[in-house]
Design a protein around this nucleic acid. Structure first.
Lengths: 204, 204
DNA sequence: AGTGCCGGATGACAGATGTCATACGACGAA
DNA sequence: TTCGTCGTATGACATCTGTCATCCGGCACT
């Protein structure tokens, strides 16, 4: 090994973040040179520390790990990207790969896979759970249009049609139409089920 | 120190669990002697390994960390209990304390607090984030009756009144009444908002 | 014995939600 | 150029949801 691998760790829960750092710290060839708790701090930190690999949680304040991955991929194309998440939503996998991620790990995989993934992506390999990859392919693409997604996302918290219309600068009827088509496309019976299902599939 | 502190770690996401184990492993006086990924395995493991402290995540399959804490507290009253969770829901804090927990930590607290909490509970202290404690007291008790809670919980996924009625062996009208009173008690405008709010406060 | 709350139920009503047909302009593919 | 799709909108209609008044039996507290 010519030099240690410099890793950036992005995860909002400090206990988990520092625990992962401790875990990676046990590896001789890996060094965690930077830690951030927000998605919108990833790019600057990656640049400042000249990291080799960025390890990104998806759920973060400021910006999701996937958005951060896209930023880094564009600005620093040599930095390898590992996306780490709680949920194996196939939809997440798809968008993460489109954002330029080199690896996609779920947090309930064994911890040993983490260091292994770091080494593999640096060697130019891609690391994806085969089960998840199959699920992502089987599931097919997001059937919702941009607007349908937007409206459904806004409706998740229980807002009424009137509120949604105001928030999105649409007429109430249009809001109802979008929700109605979304409900039909997802083959469910109301907006709450539609939101649940779409969220679960990573389509929101 | 007469002997090392024997710790049981219960957390379903293996990567996080093993990372926390690595973190605690860095402490000279602490030894992680058992790890489980399910709430319903906690008691047996605690008994088998004669642990001093059990570190329990709340969200786990099989049984929540709080339910597991209650079990252990009853069966092995000398075992100290640390409840660890993603969300600082004051409602969780309340029920955790009622279940006999000695410490309540949120995962976005600094990692150093974890080892510190383990030592403190063993010394007979209780460890609670003061901000959370204040919030729990300010918030007051759960205003919902048992049935209202049950119906609201069942309604979360978008089930219709008819489905809820069938599932809970009630009439449709009764379901509507419970949801209606819950909505009023929580001062919101529909079941979705009610579910969101109650969930957030740890009242479900 | 009376008061009040909880679980359970009914019926009536207003308002919100979901469906459907229909329309128009913009745009991209054939 | 024509066809299909998307975004946007309206109106009519059926159904679902939320509110309210009212009722009953059980139970706890005074």
């Amino acid at each position: 090994m010519s030099h240690t691998i410099k890793v950036l760790l992005a995860e909002d829960q400090s206990m988990v973040r520092e625990a992962l750092a401790a875990l990676l710290g046990l590896e001789d060839d890996i060094e965690v040179v930077a830690q951030v708790a927000r998605g919108d701090e990833v790019l600057a930190a990656a640049r400042a520390h000249g990291v080799d690999v960025a390890l990104l949680d998806i759920e973060m304040p400021g910006m999701t790990g996937i958005e951060a991955a896209a930023q880094v991929h564009k600005a620093l194309p040599d930095v390898k990207l590992v996306v780490l998440t709680t949920f194996g939503r196939p939809g997440y996998l798809r968008t993460a790969m489109e954002a330029g991620a080199d690896a996609f790990l779920v947090k309930d995989a064994p911890a040993a896979q983490l260091a292994e993934a770091v080494r593999k992506v640096l060697a130019g390999e891609r690391v994806i759970d085969p089960t998840l990859a199959a699920a992502a392919l089987a599931e097919g693409a997001n059937p919702l249009t941009d607007r349908e997604r937007e409206v459904l996302r806004a409706a998740e918290d229980g807002s009424t049609n009137a509120e949604l219309a105001a928030k999105l600068h649409l007429s109430q009827g249009t809001v109802r139409n979008y929700l109605s088509t979304a409900i039909q496309k997802l083959a469910v019976r109301n907006r709450a089920e539609a939101a649940r299902l779409a969220r679960e599939k990573g389509w929101l």
